[in-house]
Design a protein around this nucleic acid. Structure first.
Lengths: 218, 218
DNA sequence: GTCTATAGAGAGATAGAC
DNA sequence: GTCTATCTCTCTATAGAC
């Protein structure tokens, strides 16, 4: 897909600019100037601004879900034939996006900011790509049903939905958290954040079990 | 602030359009055409597109925080001199935004969509307004410290942050949840959603207490 | 207050030389 | 593949008649 150096430079700078501002406010002139290439090269290499946008999305989006599924597979394999720990499943869900977001100044942290914008306001082409993530989320329901056999499918789906909210918030608005806590919260320790997220969500999952709030903490 | 009928119509249509698409992609021509007013009237009544955007935000943003604080005050008053229940505090945080989002087709549901977009990509003027919400969140820390005296301030702030993530996600992406669960989740029953959110977050708060995962369920 | 008309800027896309 | 030059379009904002 990315054949030439020019294409790669355009993708990099577009990703950077799209992560800082909404794509409608980023001009091809800015992108090509930052990449040090001619303005006509976007249309030559990609065809249009919209296609460039889609390629920026595609370049990394699949990797993220793949990392999640790799961690999930490993957790299941290591625990087999027993189901994995709830915490291990939630770790597989939470660790990749939080780690990417913590790579301060790096391309994957920028991509996570871009992804957040896409989730709120994406083009039709990107919406189609986003909608495919249902598949990989359903994959997470399989071990969850084994771990919490008393929970209804609705309970599990809601808890998964809540957990995604916690994860998304852990990749955003950390400056607000820092100010809210007067610096008491370490917002730059990715592994601590993952740990807090997993613990919070695991408790929520267990409390949602049948609406009984059954306590399974050791 | 809203003196004339024209101003109100412009604000209503701008709110509607800004909730559907990013403000950079919404033109004054669209807004004025939808409102049935002349294109020049935006600049006459508001001065510029940016000021119109700010006014759309201001019109309802303060109300939302006010509703939260009203519920919190009531919970504290009814429980006094004891601290309120954790669930009552979380209810005060969660109920207003979720109820607004559930007013399908109504202006406040549209505003909630607009707010989500602003949280990701706002103008400088709106960022200033958003940053003031720290104050009302700190107000929630007061009862939380009484309810969970063993928790550090960092624990409480993180749990509050996680809870805001759960709440935000409960006002968005409900179509994804419906598809994920094959319709098993009722995404249109606001009070049930609030109940699920409160239960999930309360369990998370208690598990984050000292990192001990102490179980306080009856 | 409301309208028409337009100024003035800047966008995405493309033709065609090299 | 890369460049310049430019076409065509649409935007916000404003001037000025009514």
């Amino acid at each position: 897909m990315v054949a030439s150096e020019t294409q790669r430079k355009i993708l990099d700078e577009a990703e950077r600019l799209f992560s800082e501002r909404h794509y409608a406010t980023v001009t091809l002139r800015e992108i090509t100037a930052a990449a040090g290439v001619n303005i006509a090269s976007v249309n030559y290499h990609f065809g249009s601004k919209n296609i460039l946008l889609r390629e920026v999305f595609r370049r990394r989006a699949l990797d993220l879900n793949r990392e999640r599924l790799t961690l999930l597979d490993r957790a299941e394999r290591e625990a087999a034939p027993e189901p994995p720990e709830l915490e291990a499943v939630l770790f597989a869900l939470a660790a990749p996006p939080i780690r990417w977001s913590q790579e301060a100044g790096g391309p994957r942290a920028r991509f996570m900011r871009f992804l957040r914008l896409c989730r709120v306001d994406a083009t039709e082409e990107i919406k189609t790509l986003i909608s495919r993530e249902i598949g990989h989320l359903q994959r997470f329901l399989v071990p969850l049903e084994r771990i919490l056999p008393g929970s209804s499918r609705a309970d599990l789906c809601w808890s998964l939905h809540h957990s995604l909210g916690v994860i998304h918030e852990a990749t955003a608005e950390l400056d607000r958290l820092a100010r809210l806590s007067d610096g008491a919260c370490h917002t730059d320790d990715g592994e601590e954040i993952i740990d807090r997220v997993v613990r919070f969500c695991a408790a929520g999952f267990r409390a949602a079990n049948h609406g009984q709030g059954a306590c399974t903490n050791a």
